[in-house]
Amino acid sequence: MPRWLTEPVPRGRVAAFRTLVYLFVVADLLVFTPWVRDKASIPGELYQPLFVGRLLPLPTPTPLLVNILFWALLLLALAAATGRAPRALGWAVFLLYFEWMVIAMSYGKVDHDRFGFLVALAVLPTAGRARHGDRENTEAGGWALRVTQIAVVCTYFLAAWAKLRFGGIEWTTGSVLARAIIRRGTDLADLIAQVPYLLIAAQIGIIAFELLSPVVFVVPARWRQAVVAFFYSFHLVTIATITISFAPHLVAMTSFLELERLRPIDRLRRLARRRPGRNTEPPQQPQARAEPATAPEVAPDTPSAQPSPAVP
């Protein structure tokens, strides 16, 4: 088990994953959860903190607190995406984003797609330094990615457990997907809903998929990427039918991928070195023109010029 938990991975994979995670924090603040800033204008008595918010305890959100969190998190996440000071910046981003999520989820709705992403933020500071394209293996980085993978799979498995715990086996034959399609379904979902028993089959398939998700850890390595591709295809269908993206979960799930092959930083550096309007390739030297080969002249009286005698 310890060897499996700390299976070495290239440092370049850790660097790519780190950059992707911290850039998503920026995207989350600006695109996915900008509504968290609106909580600053809500009366404090409506704030019902999560258990961890009561345990610590964390302060009631105020306009000053929320805006300080927003700008500090935005700037620190951009700095952490560069890979510099991975421990100091990593811990700072995790703590600030954790408080940001407590504020977001303390008004009656808790999204379980943040679990794997929060775990990734918590373990990345322990991975140490890593550069893009570095092929050297690291056990610390392997542990950080493995723990994130476990959190991703737990998100699926525990979701199925919650469905069966609170809804019972009747969840599979209920109207869960039908209600979701009525609330936020797309045209594709409307077409699917017209097929008899297809939604029931889909609900049974969802439970089976979530319960069997730990299989990704035991299948042969050559099949693991195919299983992860199936995970992504499941969410693609979810987005196309009921417009639920699970964006932070999808980012955490890249911990299964060989991200070191992308090497985006190296490509950006090569592009930055190129200047517009200039040819970066060295000038080619003109090749010397080859003269046609000519046969040497032979004097007519030389032996080699005489015809060879016939052989009887």
Rank of each mutant, 00 (worst) to 15 (best):
P2Q: 04
P2K: 09
P8A: 12
V14R: 06
V14Q: 05
V25T: 01
D28C: 05
D28R: 01
L29H: 01
V31E: 11
W35L: 10
V36E: 10
D38N: 06
I42D: 00
Q48F: 10
V52N: 00
R54I: 04
R54D: 08
P59L: 05
A77D: 02
A80S: 02
G90R: 01
F98A: 10
E99F: 03
V102W: 08
M105G: 08
Y107K: 06
K109T: 10
D113L: 03
G116L: 03
G128N: 07
R131Q: 13
E136H: 11
E136L: 09
T138W: 00
A140S: 12
G141C: 05
L145S: 02
T148D: 03
W161G: 11
G174A: 10
V176N: 11
A180K: 09
T186R: 04
I206K: 06
I206C: 03
I207H: 06
L211M: 12
S213Y: 04
R224P: 10
A229V: 01
A240F: 03
E260C: 10
R263P: 09
P276V: 14
E281P: 03
P282V: 13
Q284K: 11
R289L: 15
A295T: 15
P296G: 11
A299E: 15
D301F: 06
P312Y: 14
